[in-house]
Design a binder for these strands. Structure first.
Lengths: 183, 183
DNA sequence: CAGCCCATGTAACGCGTTACATGATTAG
DNA sequence: CTAATCATGTAACGCGTTACATGGGCTG
């Protein structure tokens, strides 16, 4: 049930469905994803529930745009969600399921290949997130104390991604070494 | 599309739907979850697709039981899945979404409370996984070299869980410290 | 005999993805 | 003029959860 709350949270600063999608791809990807075909109907639903308000900002340049903004009722809903405490959702990690059943492949080389590929995939993700994090860090003189509240909490999620991916990347490297020893 | 492959992978050793559910709860929870209402129809579907075979092992004691086992066709399917390389599925982590929008709460104490609760939740998960891991480690004289292939790859997933949760737990502790400084 | 675990399933509903449909603007 | 990006939406389908329905066996 988090898409609803993410939309309400993000639309405290008004934007369109299309803008939100970009935010999902560029910023939220660390902890959530959604398609436009899921976003638009949700926006409609939340508007009907009076948690969002719309204004048509078409006309001037570009195609007509619907700009949404969270209402007081919507903000209350976000606060409820936060006060209820941390939501735990079951993790689904396909590549770990694959690792679990890796011995179904009979060739030692194929098992090793899988882990090498996995390691590269994780390395890329790590590099991507880490460079985003380092950039932020260097822009601030007195990081993280100098950040305002909003940027500070945004940043904690980025920091988590970096630390988690670092641990997973190191795990994948140790896996490769262990598998290599098992010839 | 992983439930299918997890069932096919796990049923290389024959068991019932109910047995599989226990495995999900006790072992796979680290990387996947599923309800019985999802498992039973999948087993039926995979049996129709000739990737599983059933035998009624009712009679003797307890209620009648259907025991499923992966066929050659099913094993080939698992191998295909593994050879295609690591599957990346988008992560959805509700509590990180909540962290991102934590500044929607105006009270500093409420923000801190959220992070303290989160830290406790993560600590519990970490302790649970880590004790499972330590037990395994101590049972083996020459860990992990002494493990057979199946146990070895099973174990890599456990190891990943431990390392990841350790990193996340440390992150949550550092978050508490940083938030405390921001009074 | 009450409550729990074993054991299998169906139904309703919501979440999420892929594909389809439409049309404007902008950059090469 | 063509391709990409901007912009909004619907339809079909599959995945996943919660609730419901049924019944046997075991333990206190």
């Amino acid at each position: 049930m988090s898409l609803k709350h993410i939309l309400l949270g993000e639309l405290q600063q008004p934007k369109s469905g299309y803008d939100i999608k970009k935010k999902f791809d560029q910023v939220f990807s660390n902890f959530w994803s959604a398609e436009l075909s899921q976003i638009y109907p949700q926006l409609k639903k939340l508007t009907e529930a009076k948690m969002l308000k719309v204004s048509d900002a078409g006309s001037s340049i570009g195609p007509s745009k619907k700009v949404y903004q969270t209402t007081e009722l919507g903000i209350t809903e976000v606060q409820k969600w936060l006060i209820e405490g941390p939501q735990q959702n079951p993790e689904k990690i396909s590549y770990l399921a694959q690792t679990y059943f890796l011995n179904t492949l009979h060739s030692h080389q194929q098992k090793l290949d899988f882990m090498i590929k996995l390691s590269k995939v994780i390395e890329e993700k790590y590099n991507f997130l880490n460079s985003a994090y380092q950039m932020r860090k260097q822009q601030e003189v007195n990081y993280p104390e100098s950040l305002d509240d909003e940027a500070f909490y945004n940043n904690l999620t980025l920091l988590m991604g970096v630390k988690k991916l670092k641990a997973i990347y190191e795990w994948s490297l140790s896996c490769i070494k262990m598998i290599e020893k098992r010839v």
